[in-house]
């Protein structure tokens, strides 16, 4: 299955792109995608990441579906 992963701010700087399409074995959780990315980009592990799936906050144990949009970012700092 394919998952579209979005990055913002700190995570976009670490990964080097704002968007990645990843292919994963089913079933896959958001946490396993984070682990996979952290192996390639160890700096990711230095930050506490928040997770959104299809524009809603979710936790690392959430199982992803084909075509989901997964966003990974650090604690928000708007205002």
């Amino acid at each position: 299955m394919k998952v579209n992963v979005l990055f913002f701010g700190v995570t976009a700087d670490i990964i080097g792109v704002r968007e990645l399409e990843l292919t994963a074995e089913e079933p896959t959780t958001a946490g396993s995608i984070i682990n996979q990315l952290s192996r390639q980009h160890p700096a990711l592990a230095n930050h506490k990441l928040l997770i959104a799936i299809n524009e809603e906050y979710a936790d690392a144990n959430t199982v992803l579906n084909d075509g989901d949009e997964l966003a990974l970012f650090t604690a928000v700092s708007g205002g």
């Binding site: 913002f8 701010g9 700190v10 700087d13 928040l50 970012f73 928000v76 700092s77 708007g78």
Partner: peptide
């Protein structure tokens, strides 16, 4: 709300983490 602020200084920059 998923918005992030980057502070840019004379000698560097940092994304603020909430």
């Amino acid at each position: 709300v998923p918005i992030w602020k980057k502070e840019v200084y004379a000698d560097g920059e940092v994304w603020v983490e909430g």
